[in-house]
Amino acid sequence: MTDALYKATILDHHKHPRHFGTLKRSTHEAHLENTLCGDEVTMQFKVEKGKVIDVAFSGRGCAITTAAASMLTEAVLGKSLAAVKKLTSKDVDKLLGVKVGPAREKCAYLGLETLHKAFS
């Protein structure tokens, strides 16, 4: 089955999530749940001199939730706090390389929402 949503990159991040785990010392962190299904994501960041120098995420979720959060961790590492705070759902769509559609938006953007909560 060739399916834009379940293409190789997304499945790869789902099966091998990057920066999955916890940080011993984080400067910012947040936890959010998708009330629709109970999926949850925790994101932790270590920020020094205005830059994200370490990141981790944990939780449990569907392939879309996991892959999007995983891709996000790669995207923010080494970035300036100002840039990270500016990330939008459009950026997540770009990372995923596909628009997930209304039924799965909550999954795709859970990591992003968690990130913004951590820095709010």
Binding site: D3, C37, D39, C62, R104, C107
Partner: peptide
């Protein structure tokens, strides 16, 4: 994950529920 299953089934014309 049931959400992924529901999405994949939808692609095959099958509507099931997933969630709590």
């Amino acid at each position: 994950h049931p959400h992924d299953l529901a999405t994949l089934l939808d692609r095959e014309g099958v509507a099931i529920r997933s969630g709590h």
